[in-house]
Design a protein around this nucleic acid. Structure first.
Length: 233
DNA sequence: GCGACAG
DNA sequence: ATCTTGTCGC
């Protein structure tokens, strides 16, 4: 039962159309728990880019992780992006390739951690929301820096602080490692903020970023190198 | 008008 | 996002 949606949700012709599509999608985001029974099998999605690449290639990867933290499945997609990187519209660049990778992933996870913002976005539609809605899958946004909002969590591992923006609580900053910057957690789709923070906490293992995100990052880098090597010959 | 700006 | 070795600190 893949959810149906209009083509401009993935391929808007202009930034103005992308903005309109975000408004349509934002109205459909489910910001509370709507998940299968526990335990949830986690996964993560990330995209790697070749710097200075005039072709704007997108190297996407999604991984499925087991309870022990091992990668049990991985799928990727390398393609020439049809939308440039524009702050606030990252999803239009990354989601198409990620959706293609998702289709080939087996087994698929119940819950996906996405490298980027969820609701902590100027129009409430970060990449995590975008991907979750297009796939119809529960997602959580895990970003390394803020796009909008302010927050200041304490220095101890586990400390949290709300991310506030225009008077709204749009996410939670979580200190995952002492001496390192926090990670910014926000709802993607079909998950409440409390659950999102708890899941990210549980997925951390002493490093700044949760293990699934690191695995996805490594997988995306691997495809990028493979693609670059293949194209060179 | 000016500055900011996930990956 | 990416370019990159060593180096400082716990």
């Amino acid at each position: 039962m893949t959810p149906q949606f209009p083509p401009h949700w993935l391929h808007p012709g202009t930034v103005a159309q992308a903005r309109a599509a975000q408004a349509e999608m934002a109205a459909r985001i489910v910001a509370h728990d709507d998940l299968p029974p526990r335990p949830w099998r986690l996964g993560a999605a990330d995209v790697s880019n070749t710097r200075f690449d005039p072709l704007r290639r997108v190297h996407a990867a999604i991984v499925t992780i087991d309870a022990a933290g091992a990668v049990v499945a991985q799928a990727d997609e390398s393609r020439v992006g049809d939308f440039p990187y524009v702050p606030g519209y990252l999803g239009f660049r990354e989601v198409p390739a990620l959706a293609a990778a998702w289709a080939r992933l087996d087994p698929k996870p119940d819950l996906l951690l996405v490298d980027g913002q969820g609701l902590a976005h100027p129009r409430g539609l970060g990449t995590a929301c975008h991907l979750g809605l297009v796939l119809g899958v529960p997602t959580i946004g895990v970003a390394k820096s803020l796009l909008v909002g302010t927050t200041e969590p304490g220095p101890a591992v586990g400390d949290v602080a709300p991310i506030l923006w225009k008077g709204a609580h749009i996410g939670t900053a979580l200190r995952t490692r002492h001496g390192a910057g926090p990670v910014y957690v926000s709802v993607g789709h079909r998950v409440g903020l409390d659950t999102a923070v708890a899941v990210v906490r549980a997925a951390c293992d002493g490093r700044r970023l949760p293990l699934p995100i690191r695995a996805a990052h490594a997988a995306a880098n691997a495809v990028r190198r493979a693609q670059e090597a293949a194209r060179a010959t």
